Structure formats: C-alpha cells, structure tokens
Simulated scan of single mutants.
Amino acid sequence: MNLFAAAAITLGTFAFMEFWAWFMHRFVQHGPLWVLHRSHHVRPSPRPFERNDWFFVIYGTLSAGLWMSGANGQRWWFWVGVGIAAYGTVYFFVHDVLIHGRLRFWKKSDNTYLRALNMAHKMHHKTQGRDDSAEFGLLWVSPKYLALAREKKLKTVNEKL
C-alpha cells in the first residue's frame, strides 16, 4: 500500500472516530451501557480505574487486532487500526489527563481551544445522571465555548495590564 493511501485511511479513520465517539457516548454510553459509563460521572472517583475504562480496553483490542492482522501495513485495515489507536491516544491525553487530571503531569492550559474543550466537558458533567447531559464529543467544540474561552482569555490579559 502506498504512503498516500495509508495516510488517507489513517486520517480518515481518526476523523470518523470523533463522530463515532460522539454517537457511542450519546446513544450507547448514556443508554444501554450506562452501567459501565456511570462510574465516569461519579466525582470524585473512588478508584484509579473505573468501569468506564472498559471502553479503552474494547477499542484498544479492536485497534490491536486490526493492525496485528494487517500484514504489517500491507492491508488497509492495518491503517484503520492505526487511526483508532491515534484517536484513542489523543482521547486519553485530552480527556483523562488534561480535563480530568487522572495523571498530574499536564496542568491546565492557556490555549483557547483547550479551555473551550474543557468548558464543554464541564457542561457534560454538570449532571451526574445519564439524562439531560450535553456536549458528547471530544475534539469538536461548539463555537459558543470557543467564544467564551476567548472572552475569558481577553479578560485575564486585560486584568494583568
């Protein structure tokens, strides 16, 4: 498989995973698999691992299976597995490390996009129940949160002056 096709499949899979994560979060995790996801909405979490972490295991196993059976990059599904793994890695660092602080090496950011993403996620966790939540995506941020983050950043800059 040529490099362009491999990159296109990987990037396409990564982009699709944002839609897929939103769909699964909205209709499956806050639906029939709430029994697993509920642990993520309990704050503070009483354990270092939550039932919700099974979703990482599920997608990690799927990704590993695809790239392990993908003939070392010769089959298209190898690159799908790479795209899923790349999205999962970004998801872990943004969601679990930056937003929820499960590992304490990445402090809050001044970056407008990351602050907007954090605001949107806080809106999702505003309710601890499975119903009445909002903002189910990870990387796509509603423009209203970007505007709020810009406003707060300008206010902070002006206060320092």
Rank of each mutant, 00 (worst) to 15 (best):
R26T: 03
K107M: 13
I84P: 00
W54K: 00
I99L: 11
F55P: 01
F19I: 11
R130W: 02
L139K: 05
R43S: 12
A21F: 04
L138T: 07
Y87S: 00
I99R: 01
V97P: 02
G81L: 04
W79A: 02
Q74S: 14
W106I: 09
A134T: 15
I99V: 00
W77N: 12
V35A: 10
H121K: 07
G73M: 10
G137D: 08
G101W: 12
V42T: 04
N72D: 11
G31M: 05
G88N: 13
E50L: 09
A116Y: 06
R115C: 07
F93I: 12
G129H: 12
E135Q: 12
V35P: 03
T89C: 15
N52P: 11
T127K: 03
R104S: 04
H124S: 11
S63A: 06
F56R: 07
G88D: 11
A21E: 10
M68E: 06
W140F: 15
G73D: 02
S69P: 07
L138S: 05
G88P: 05
T127V: 11
T89V: 15
D131Q: 14
H25I: 01
A21I: 03
I99W: 00
W77E: 05
F27Q: 09
A116R: 02
W20Y: 10
M24N: 05
N111K: 11
G73C: 11
W106G: 00
F136H: 02
D53A: 00
F78Q: 01
K122Y: 08
P48Q: 00
L36R: 03
G31K: 08
L98D: 01
I58D: 03
V90W: 10
V82M: 06
F19V: 06
R43F: 07
V90I: 10
T61E: 02
L117Y: 06
V141H: 08
V141F: 11
V97R: 01
S142M: 07
P46I: 11
E135F: 03
R115K: 10
G31F: 02
V82F: 07
H41A: 05
A64W: 04
V82C: 14
P32M: 13
M68A: 04
N118W: 06
V57Q: 13
I99P: 00
Q74V: 06
Y59G: 08
W106P: 08
M24R: 13
F93E: 12
S39T: 15
H37A: 08
W34R: 07
W140Y: 14
H125V: 07
F93W: 15
V35C: 14
G31A: 15
W22C: 02
F56G: 09
A86D: 03
G70N: 06
W140H: 12
H40W: 13
Y91P: 12
F19S: 05
V141K: 14
R26E: 14
L98S: 09
V82Y: 00
R130A: 14
E50W: 09
G73A: 13
D53P: 03
K107A: 15
W22H: 00
A116I: 06
G81W: 00
